[in-house]
Computed example of a mutant assay.
Amino acid sequence: MTTDTADTAAPAAPLLRAEDLHVSFAGRNGAARARAVDGVDLDIRRGEIVALVGESGCGKTTLARSLLGLVPPTGGHVTFDGKPLDYSSRALKAYRKRVQLVLQDPSGSLNPRHTVYDAVAEGLRIHGYGGDERAAVAEALSRAGLRPPERFFLRYPHELSGGQRQRVVIAGALVLEPELIVADEPVASLDASVRGEILALLLRLRTELGLSALVVTHDLGLAWNIADRVAVMYLGRIVETGEVEQVLTAPRHPYTQALLSVLPEAPGDPVVLTGEPPDPSRIPAGCRFHARCQILASGEAERAGVADACRGRDLEVLDGAGGTQVACHWARATVAG
C-alpha cells in the first residue's frame, strides 16, 4: 500500500552559512580586543544575491574576508555546501576555486606588468588547470562582456577603461567557474555611466550560470538594483535583514532609516547621524546604535516605554535564514503595540 504525501520538502540548505560568527583583533599595548564582527548569522542560497550594507568601519569587509577564509573567525563557524570550512592550506585552495573575490579597485587588483590574458589565466595556473587554457580565458572574457576576447589578450591594464578593467577582474573570477562570488564595492570606483553595465553583468551571470553573490557596499541604491535580500550591518552586527523591497521601502531600524534618508529620491529631510560609530573595542551596553539614535534622541523611544532597554539591554543575534528581522527595541515595541 502506498501513501500520498503533500510536498512538504524543507527549503534547500544554504550554499554558504555563517553561524554566530565573531572576528576580533588584538588591541595595541594591552588595549581591549576590537570586535570587528561580533555575532553574525548569515545564509546565502544558491542563485541568490545578498547585499551587505553599512557605513565604512562597520565590519562588513572583515565579515566578507572571514567568509572567504582569509580571516579565521575567533568564534562561531562558516559552512559551505553543508561542510564546515577547513582552514588548512590545501582545503582553502580548493574552497577558493569555488568562492571567488571581486575587489572594488580594478586598478589595484591588476598587475600593471601583466597582460589581460595573464591576469585572467593566473587562477587557472595556480589551481593546475589541465584543460585548454586559451579557450577558458576566452570564454571568461566573453562572459564578462569583453568581445571578441582575443582583441584584449595582449592589452595591459593602462590601455583599458575603468569599466573594462573591472570586467577583466570579473573574468579572472569566472574563469574558475565558482559557485559564489564576493564582490566588495564592485562599482564604487566607476563612473555612473558604467556602474549600470557592471550591475547588469552581475545579474546576467546569476541568470546564466546560477551564481550566488554577496555584494558588500555602502550604497543602498546599489542594493536596491541588484539584491534579492539585504543585511544592514552596524558595529559588527546585522541590525536589520530581509527581502530587499521590504527592508528598503519600509525600513524599521532607525539606522536603516537614516541610511535611506540621504538617497536623492527619499521623501522628507535627511537624517543626520551625530558622531561616529563607537570604537569596536568599546561597544556600548544596550543597543549598540543608541548613542546616535534619532528615535532615542527625539523622545519617541521614551514614549514607547523602551528607552531604558535601548540604553541597557542587548539584542540577540538575528537569524540569518532570510526572514524580515530587526534588532531594535523601539521597532519591536511599535509593532507589538
Rank of each mutant, 00 (worst) to 15 (best):
V326Q: 00
L124P: 01
L260G: 06
A223H: 06
R113N: 09
T249R: 15
A91I: 09
F152G: 02
L124E: 01
R292K: 08
P148R: 11
M233Q: 01
A304M: 10
E122H: 09
G57K: 12
V182N: 05
D228E: 10
L205M: 09
L259Y: 05
C310E: 01
T334R: 14
D269P: 13
A135S: 13
G57Q: 12
T334P: 04
G145I: 07
V326F: 01
A227H: 10
T217D: 00
P11E: 00
V78H: 01
I181D: 00
C310Q: 02
R311M: 06
R96N: 05
T249Y: 12
G312Y: 10
Y156C: 05
L201M: 07
L68R: 00
W330L: 08
T3S: 01
L174F: 12
S281L: 00
A200W: 01
V169E: 00
D81R: 11
Q100R: 12
A36P: 14
T8Y: 00
C310V: 08
R125F: 10
C293N: 09
S212I: 04
S212A: 15
R167H: 04
E179F: 06
L263R: 09
K93Y: 02
I126R: 00
A140F: 12
M233I: 03
D132P: 03
Y255I: 08
W224P: 02
L68E: 00
P270S: 08
R313Q: 13
A18I: 04
Y156H: 14
M1V: 08
G54Y: 03
V175N: 04
Q246F: 05
I283M: 08
R134M: 05
G82K: 03
G172D: 01
I126N: 02
R282I: 00
L63C: 06
V50L: 07
E159P: 12
R303A: 09
A309F: 12
E302T: 15
A188R: 14
G54F: 06
L259E: 07
S24E: 12
A321H: 13
D118Q: 15
V271L: 14
A291E: 10
D279M: 07
L203C: 09
C287N: 05
G57A: 08
A36Y: 12
G322P: 07
R292L: 03
G27K: 01
L199G: 07
E150Q: 14
A200V: 04
E265Y: 12
C328K: 14
V40I: 13
G47N: 02
A94P: 14
R96W: 05
V53F: 03
R90P: 05
Q294P: 11
G69Y: 05
S109W: 03
L174S: 10
L202M: 15
V216D: 02
K97S: 14
G299H: 08
N225L: 11
A119S: 15
S107W: 14
S24G: 14
S107K: 11
Q100T: 12
A119R: 05
P264L: 01
A309W: 09
A327F: 05
P112F: 13
L201C: 10
P112A: 11
I283S: 11
A140R: 06
I198E: 04
R313P: 07
R45A: 14
R288L: 02
G323P: 12
G130L: 11
T115Q: 01
V216R: 02
S281H: 09
D41H: 11
P186I: 02
A304T: 07
I126P: 00
E48F: 07
A144D: 07
T61S: 15
S88P: 03
L70E: 04
E133S: 09
Y156R: 14
G75N: 04
A213F: 11
